[in-house]
Computed example of a mutant assay.
Amino acid sequence: MDSPHGAAVKAEDFGLKGPRGWAFRGIGLDAAPGSLIAVEGPSGTGRTCLLLALTGRMKPTEGHAEIGRHRLPKKMAAVRRIAALGPVPGINDLDQSLTVAEQLREGALLQRHYGAPIRSLLRPRAERRATAAARIEAALDAAGLDLATLPKGERTTVRDLERLEAVRLSVAIALLGSPRLLALDDLDIKLSDTERTEVWALLRSIAARGVTVLAVCSEAPADAVVLRTGPKEDGGAPEAKQPTGAAGTPKITWGTRAKDGAEADRETEADADGHAAVEKDSGERKDAAADAEKPAKADDGNDSNDDSNDDNDDTKGADDALAEAGRA
């Protein structure tokens, strides 16, 4: 697996409004490539919406952000190509009926079918299989998942995995595409304090490899660049705190909700034309597996053609077509 240079993440007055009010607004951030960014806040403050917006899956309503050299909301498609989702419940859940080996092979097929350069599809089948096996092995190593320690090895079904093992598997699948930004949601759910410490250690190691990490949590570690969501209790902006070992002080701004008491829904909705680009891998799996051996048009690394179409693709639909997705 490659070790790509991480994407810088910047935002200014970033906000998203759905049918039930503002999911978040007034977000400001300036994080260097390879940073560990923690989105911290209570339930119902638009944390998941913010994660999806910063990865090009939901269209913001106001302000702008830059992921690498791609500016949001104009370049959503380009951002989706360099930003991968780790575990995001309700969006890219693992298939509980598959074995770990099957889930990994499926992830490799999807990556080859949709994300690999088209020239790679012209290689001999044996070479493609060897390359996929090498990428899977490297991704498992980066995610800290040793298949030999599982109850039935690679034949263990996903439903039999512990929560921490499932997180590592999701991270490994996300890393198959060598993303520049890795995003994860709800790191606090169903993890003990010890397991939570292990997850943050994993994310630090991934950031140390050069991948920028964006993680939603209830309580951020001291060494992360912290992005807080939710209303300010003291009426004033918080002080920006320099994470341990980081150079420079990040700009940190609170996100606020316009409607007090309006709880954000977990679900995300597409607009009438389907341009709220929330990634749902499960809907593509069967088609990808069936077509995996057929030549397919894929990203050739040239952003100019795709970016020229983003103005048309990402500006359609009603302004309020995006729904809120705040979670615990």
Score class of each variant (00 low, 15 high):
86 G>W: 01
87 P>V: 07
87 P>W: 01
89 P>V: 10
91 I>K: 09
91 I>S: 05
92 N>P: 03
94 L>M: 09
94 L>Q: 04
94 L>F: 05
94 L>I: 08
96 Q>I: 11
96 Q>N: 09
96 Q>D: 13
96 Q>F: 09
96 Q>W: 09
97 S>V: 12
98 L>P: 02
98 L>K: 13
102 E>Q: 15
103 Q>S: 15
105 R>C: 08
107 G>F: 00
107 G>M: 02
111 Q>T: 14
112 R>C: 02
112 R>V: 00
114 Y>C: 09
116 A>M: 09
116 A>D: 13
117 P>Y: 11
117 P>H: 12
123 R>H: 07
123 R>K: 14
124 P>H: 03
128 R>W: 03
129 R>P: 00
129 R>Y: 03
132 A>T: 09
138 A>F: 05
140 L>K: 06
140 L>Q: 07
144 G>M: 10
144 G>P: 04
145 L>Y: 09
150 L>V: 00
153 G>D: 11
153 G>E: 11
153 G>L: 12
153 G>S: 12
154 E>F: 00
156 T>N: 06
157 T>N: 01
158 V>M: 04
159 R>N: 06
160 D>S: 12
162 E>K: 08
165 E>G: 05
168 R>Q: 14
171 V>G: 01
171 V>H: 01
172 A>R: 02
173 I>W: 00
176 L>I: 06
176 L>Y: 02
177 G>N: 09
180 R>T: 07
183 A>P: 07
184 L>V: 14
186 D>M: 05
187 L>I: 12
187 L>E: 04
189 I>V: 15
190 K>E: 11
192 S>P: 06
194 T>L: 06
195 E>G: 02
196 R>S: 07
197 T>S: 13
197 T>Y: 05
198 E>N: 08
198 E>H: 11
200 W>P: 01
200 W>E: 03
200 W>Q: 02
201 A>E: 14
203 L>G: 02
203 L>I: 04
205 S>A: 15
206 I>S: 08
206 I>W: 07
210 G>C: 11
210 G>M: 11
211 V>P: 04
212 T>F: 00
213 V>A: 03
214 L>S: 03
215 A>V: 05
215 A>K: 01
215 A>I: 04
216 V>R: 00
217 C>W: 01
222 A>P: 07
224 A>E: 01
